[in-house]
Design a protein around this nucleic acid. Structure first.
Length: 887
RNA sequence: GCGAGGGUGGCUGAGCUAGGCCAAAGGCGGCGGGCUUAAGACCCGCUCCCGUAGGGGUCCAUGGGUUCGAAUCCCAUCCCUCGCACCA
């Protein structure tokens, strides 16, 4: 590789980097060779999984990023010699398909299947290596029959409930929404942003709350998950420990309240009921003011707490005092018990309300080391020590809570959760039919297993639920009594589909169970899961729940589905989220057509680490493409016209740098940061270029470096590296090649690098500062042996008088510079770091001389401390050689 | 309000988990040079300030602290992003 490698190559070569010509061809070759198939008898393969896409039409940049990260990691694991399971599938049920079908005058199935076809082609064009034999599609009856089957097993286990409940209703989508699908203060539908209203319907629920404690406790063990996701799940489950206490309400008897601050009960100066609670409704029947408030004024979403006094009083069980009962809109019927004791002195919201209504505010807790706070202006909400609480005065809040829990009649410890049971009923067509038949005599009856799957009938256009329009579907016979009965027309929330799909990949064609237990025990959990942060709560929580439920049904040994999780950041354009409505979308197809998939993948991976968002820029894409072109040309040039020299000392340098790249790359891939690996590979290529311009390189060294670069890049840019692997003379796939290994110590390599870099920097500074126009000779002298020894001694010596210690030894005393150096060491003794031996310093510098020679066009010599004259070595220290520059 | 994550040189972005190799990578942009009829592409160098031998100054949101030593650890403040929120 001689002068002007790239240009020379460009000038006389036939072959140029043409992604269009090679990418498809390699995709075919992988396919034909079945490279990505995971045999059923694989032993505990590395399970690498990207969240399967919703079949919305075509891939966007978020998908590309998600699956590039996943694919790169899977390919890396494969090159490390591990079996890998890397499947793909389609989250293909859901409302948007019905909307799309309506708009396009087709049906959801056809629309969905065409989306899948497009998206699969795009994935292939990106070069993602999936085991397509394991593909799953949730709208396939052979998939959703297992949703139905699981629904029935859950039912047997008591995990399914049918209850009339007020549900979120989106008037536009005409469907029930889960709490999670209602967004923000304005309570808008997550899909169409229509304000959500309320409706009372009979709904099917999975009682995920049965697992609330385990779901929250086990978060502590999820060490491979990002903190943000863990925190969001904890908040979502919202476990709170407190107490339930009955208050006697005039005319109504005991009414339970829930509180986390039982210690403040002596300060409870009023009692409040939710407007939609039974008692409030009852009161309203007799009390016009209350009725008026409930009908016209109550605004649970408003900022201000509003309420109305009733004529009733309640008895504070701690004080025996009668306190007024209010109906107030800040009391929510689905939080706690729907009734509360209000302690204005120690709760901000109660304080605002009390001030507004003129209710007394009585402090019962004071700071541990302070006076009773003035609570008339502002509530004191911290724990402290009790006052004005009779026999409980002087107790800490914590002690008082447990004491009161024991003492108060009817009080008991209680734990409340924000988590609600998972409503899985949807009044839509494009989903899994719930396998239930409603019989007038027998009630809801499960469809027998031998009648599964309950398949969807043909699609009907209607404003409501299409299933209700299809008589052949609805009209059936009761499996128990044989009388005419009606089939359930609700379908399942699509989050049911996605809550176990990762188990189906294990045995996608299994016909008598959703998954093979034995294999799932071996292959699960997913080792590395990658997907968007938007699934932090819903999908990831439901998947954890289903995994635990299935484990308790003895179908699986694992209780958590995902060992490590990466949530990738967004792809932005000019600092903004890409969105169709804004029209600022970069389409993956265009990028692939213009630059090729490898460029798109490489840019995506080197732009930022996976969890961070990054800006898509044309300049960045071009810079990635340029690099791939350079690499292509360098390898072609090497193969066509290999160098024939020995490269002199430079060869050792290149070898060492190649070691370094291998070491860093492994670390970087393992951590899933990737950027460091890609950068080092890039640097090594430009080093090779310089190597070729400086001398006639040693062919094996160049080959090894190129092979290292190609292999380090292979997971990210798979097509071009296959091509180059072939050019380098290999017949097998680079995807099957072994990962470049380095057994040595990365710390040593870094020490060597630092020495070289610092020395070069020093030479530059000297030349610059001394204004040396044209250096002709550079002499570098390593510090003499004795300085290294003194340095070593100083690092180990822990007495006070280091100078004395050094000068007390004969082996140092004979050197003139010894006293000064000893003082020097004394001054710096705490910042002394490990150093190379003088011999290896000399070796390291010797193989780096060419860098200096090249830069300054000067002759460079490296001397040992003993060879150099003492004028020079006087300035040398371990890690810092002396330098003399002759003009 | 609560919780999580951030604030790095003209921009972007690494470094922060394991403090010293950090005036702080890479990319982009800018400047200078090479190649070229020219432009583009490509290649080389420079890109915080001062300094005639490797020095000094300022610097990683702001202020303080720990330490021999801080972009990195701790505390406070300000700002940004995301999630949750009249939650008893």
């Amino acid at each position: 590789m001689s002068r002007g490698t790239v240009r020379r190559y460009m000038a006389d070569s036939e072959r140029e980097y043409d992604p269009g010509a090679i990418e498809e061809q390699w995709q075919q070759s992988w396919d034909e060779a079945d490279v990505f198939r995971t045999p059923d008898d694989a032993e505990d393969p590395a399970y690498v999984l990207g969240m399967f896409p919703y079949t919305s039409g075509s891939l966007h940049m978020g998908h590309v990023r998600n699956y590039t990260i996943t694919d790169a990691f899977a390919r890396y694991k494969r090159m490390q010699g591990e079996d890998v399971l890397h499947p793909m599938g389609w989250d293909s049920f859901g409302l948007p398909a019905e909307n799309a079908a309506e708009e396009r005058d087709t049906n959801p199935e056809e629309w969905t299947l065409s989306c899948i076809e497009t998206m699969r082609e795009q994935m292939d064009a990106m070069g993602f290596g999936y085991d397509w034999d394991r593909e799953v599609m949730t709208c396939d009856p052979e998939y959703y029959r297992w949703n139905q089957w699981l629904f029935k097993r859950f039912h047997e286990e008591g995990l399914v409930e049918r209850k009339a409940s007020e549900v979120n209703w989106c008037p536009s989508c005409e469907t029930v929404l889960a709490d999670e699908q209602v967004e923000g203060d304005a309570e808008l539908c997550w899909r169409c942003d229509t304000p959500v209203t309320q409706r009372n319907l009979d709904q099917w629920f999975f009682t995920i709350t049965d697992y609330a404690d385990e779901l929250v406790d086990a978060i502590d063990e999820l060490e491979g998950w990002p903190d943000s996701v863990r925190a969001m799940q904890r908040d979502w489950i919202g476990r709170q420990h407190g107490a339930v206490v009955p208050f006697e309400v005039e005319d109504y008897g005991d009414v339970d309240i829930f509180t986390t601050r039982l210690d403040t009960i002596h300060g409870a100066t009023f009692f409040a009921l939710a407007p939609d609670s039974e008692i409030a409704q009852d009161i309203a029947a007799e009390d016009d003011d209350v009725a008026h408030f409930i009908e016209h004024e109550a605004d649970p979403d408003g900022d201000e707490p509003n309420g109305v006094a009733t004529d009733l009083t309640a008895t504070n069980p701690a004080t025996g005092e009668e306190i007024p009962v209010f109906v107030a809109d800040f009391v929510l019927s689905d939080v706690g018990t729907g009734a509360l004791m209000a302690v204005p002195a120690h709760d901000e919201r109660d304080h605002i309300f009390a001030t507004k209504k003129g209710v007394p505010i009585e402090p019962v807790v004071k700071p541990e080391d302070g006076d009773v706070p003035d609570v008339q202006e502002e509530a004191y909400t911290e724990d402290g020590v009790l006052v004005n609480s009779g026999e409980y005065d002087g107790l800490t809040s914590e002690d008082a809570r447990s004491q009161l829990e024991d003492d108060l009649p009817g009080a008991s410890h209680d734990t409340q959760y924000q988590l609600r049971d998972w409503g899985v009923s949807r009044q839509r067509y494009w989903g899994t039919p719930i396998p239930v038949i409603h019989c007038d005599d027998c009630g809801p009856v499960m469809v027998p297993d031998d009648q599964l799957p309950v398949e969807l009938p043909e699609f009907v256009q209607t404003t409501g639920n299409p299933l209700e329009e299809v008589d052949e579907f609805v009209e059936t016979a009761c499996p128990d009594c044989g009388q005419p009965a009606r089939r359930e027309t609700d379908t399942m929330d699509t989050f049911v589909d996605s809550s176990w799909y990762f188990l189906r990949y294990v045995s996608p064609d299994l016909e008598d169970a959703p998954f093979d237990t034995e294999r799932a025990n071996d292959w699960m959990p997913v080792d590395q899961y990658v997907g968007g942060i938007e699934h932090a709560v819903m999908h990831l929580l439901y998947s954890r729940f289903v995994t635990k439920a299935v484990a308790d049904m003895e179908m699986l040994e694992h209780r958590e589905p995902f060992e490590r999780l990466v949530t990738q950041g967004m792809v932005l354009l000019e600092g903004e989220k890409m969105s169709k409505s804004k029209g600022n979308v970069v389409s993956p197809q265009n990028i692939v057509e213009e630059y090729g998939a490898d460029t798109a993948r490489l840019f995506t991976m080197q732009a930022a680490r996976p969890e961070r968002e990054f800006n898509w820029t044309d300049e960045g894409v071009e810079s990635s493409h340029r690099f791939l072109t350079q690499l292509y040309n360098a390898v072609e040039e090497f193969a066509a016209d290999p160098p024939a020299g020995d490269g002199g000392a430079v060869t050792d340098y290149v070898e060492r740098e190649t070691d370094y790249v291998a070491a860093v790359a492994s670390q970087s891939y393992e951590e899933m940061t990737f950027t460091a690996a890609l950068r080092e590979a890039q640097d090594l290529l430009s080093l090779l270029d310089r190597y070729g311009r400086y001398t006639e390189p040693e062919p094996d060294t160049v080959r090894r470096a190129l092979e290292t670069i190609v292999r380090v890049l292979a997971p990210v840019a798979p097509h071009i590296t296959e091509e180059l692997w072939r050019t380098l003379g290999y017949d097998d796939f680079v995807v099957d090649a072994s990962w470049p290994a380095f057994d040595g110590d990365l710390a040593d390599l870094e020490l060597e690098r630092a020495l070289i870099e610092e020395t070069r920097e020093d030479v530059r500074q000297i030349v610059d500062v001394a204004d040396i126009a044209d250096p002709s000779e550079v002499v570098i002298a390593v510090a003499p042996e004795w300085k290294h020894e003194a340095h070593e001694l100083a690092r180990e010596f822990d007495g006070d008088n280091l100078v004395g210690e050094i000068m007390g030894r004969e082996e140092f005393r004979e050197y003139d510079g010894a006293p000064d150096y000893a003082k020097d060491l004394q001054a710096k003794r705490q910042s002394l770091t490990p150093q190379l031996t003088p011999e290896s310093e000399q070796d390291v510098l010797a193989r780096a001389t060419w860098l200096v020679a090249e830069e300054f066009d000067a002759e460079v010599t490296v001397l040992s401390g003993e060879e150099a004259d003492s004028d020079l070595t006087g300035k040398a220290e371990p890690g810092r050689p002396a330098i003399r520059i002759e003009e």
